[in-house]
Simulated assay, not measured.
Amino acid sequence: MTRFRPCIDLHSGQVKQIVGGTLNSDNPDTLKTNFISPHPPAYFSKLYRENGLTGAHVIMLGPGNTEAAKEALAAWPRGLQVGGGINDKNAREWIDAGADKVIITSYLFPDGRFSQERLDAVLSSLGGDTSKLVIDLSCRRHPEEKKKEEGVWVVAMNKWQTLTDMEVNADSIKRLEPYCSEFLIHAADNEGLQGGIDSALVERLAEWCSVPVTYAGGGRNADDLEDVKRLSRGKVDLTIGSALDCFGGKGVTLAECVEWNRQQQQQ
C-alpha cells in the first residue's frame, strides 16, 4: 500500500527545504533554499506524531545538525528514522538516542566505491539487527546523455554531489536487501524542484524491491501520490517536501496527505 511519508531536512541546525542538486559543499553560494522554517525540529516531530505519520526520515545535511536531530528524536522516541553522517561508530548511539532506524549512504562508499566491509561493520554495531537499518540509495541520472534517456541511475553521496561506482538496478537491490529493512531513494535531480516525480525510477523500484522503499524527489501534490500508487502498484511510498504547506509550499496540505493515507488504509 503506497503511503505518504514526511521528512525533516536539517541544514546548519535548521529545518529547511533545499534544491538537492545545489548542495555543493565546495561552493555554498550556489545553495538554493526553498524554505527555512521558523519552527524547531521538535515541532515537526510532534506534528507527525499527532497525525500518525510513521516512517518519517530526519536527514542531517552536513555538519552542525546533531543537536537539532536529537531534539527531533526526543519529541517522538522510536517514531523517526535518522540519517546523515551515520557510520559504524555512531549508529548504535542514534538508536539509543531514540531513532527507530538509522539510514546510511556515504559511509558505504569510501572514495566513491561500495564497501561490503563497512556495511557489515554498521550492521554489526546494531547487533546484526537488519530491522534497524535503512540503506539510502539516493541517486542521479547517469551523466551520459544516452544512458540518462534510457534511465540509468547512479548512487550519489556527499549530499548528492559525488557519483559512486554503484548503479541503482535489480542487481544492486538484490545484493543489499539482506542487510536492511527498507530503502530510501531520493531522485536528487528532481529534489526540491516540485517539477514532478521520476516516473521511470518509481516503476523500476517497484520491480526491483521486495522490502519497503520510499521515493523522494519532485513531489508536487496529491496527484503525485496517486501516480506513485499506480506506477508502483502500491509498492512504493512517497515523500513530499517543498510542496507541503508546512514547508511553505502551495501544492498540497499536510492535512490532505494525512487524509490520503487514511483512505488507503480503509481500502
Results as ranks from 00 to 15, higher is better:
S25C: 03
S138F: 03
A222L: 15
M60D: 05
P178F: 07
S25V: 12
R92C: 07
G64L: 09
G192H: 07
L61M: 13
D224L: 09
L23I: 07
K16Q: 13
Q14L: 13
L53A: 10
Q14F: 01
L231Q: 07
H39Y: 14
T22Q: 04
L73W: 07
Q81M: 14
G112Y: 09
T2N: 09
Y179S: 13
T22I: 05
V15N: 04
L61G: 00
K229W: 10
A170Y: 05
P77R: 15
S12E: 15
G20L: 01
L225P: 09
G55W: 08
E144N: 15
S242W: 00
L47G: 00
F114W: 08
S131N: 14
D96S: 11
E207S: 10
G192I: 04
E177T: 15
L193N: 11
P212D: 14
T66R: 12
E226W: 05
D165C: 05
H57Y: 04
G195T: 06
V236C: 10
W76I: 06
S125T: 07
P143I: 12
K148M: 15
H142F: 06
Q194L: 12
D88M: 01
L126F: 12
V82K: 09
Q267D: 12
L73Q: 04
K250M: 02
D26C: 05
L137D: 02
S181W: 02
K250S: 15
G219H: 10
P110G: 00
K250R: 13
P110K: 00
N24C: 08
P77C: 07
S210V: 12
G62D: 10
V202M: 06
L23W: 00
A188M: 06
C257W: 04
T30W: 04
L254W: 08
P40Q: 14
L126G: 14
A243E: 01
Q194T: 13
A222N: 04
D223E: 15
S199Q: 14
C139Y: 06
I135M: 02
G128A: 11
E256T: 13
K89P: 00
V252N: 01
L61E: 00
N221V: 03
G62Y: 11
D88P: 01
G127M: 14
L137S: 05
I103V: 15
G62K: 05
I104G: 01
S199F: 01
Q116P: 06
W208T: 09
A216V: 11
L184Q: 02
F114K: 03
N24Q: 11
A97N: 12
I36W: 00
K235T: 12
S138H: 04
N158F: 05
V211W: 03
L47V: 11
N87G: 03
V168E: 07
W208C: 13
L80W: 11
E50P: 02
V211F: 03
S106W: 12
C209V: 13
P40I: 03
E256H: 03
E226P: 01
L205G: 05
R175E: 14
G127K: 14
G55V: 09
N34P: 02
S172A: 10
S115R: 00
Y215D: 10
L108S: 01
T22V: 08
K101E: 14
K101F: 08
G251W: 02
T162H: 09
D171V: 13
R3D: 02
D9K: 03
V213R: 10
P6W: 02
L47C: 06
A68M: 05
A200H: 12
H142C: 06
E150Y: 04
R233M: 09
L73F: 07
N87F: 02
E259W: 11
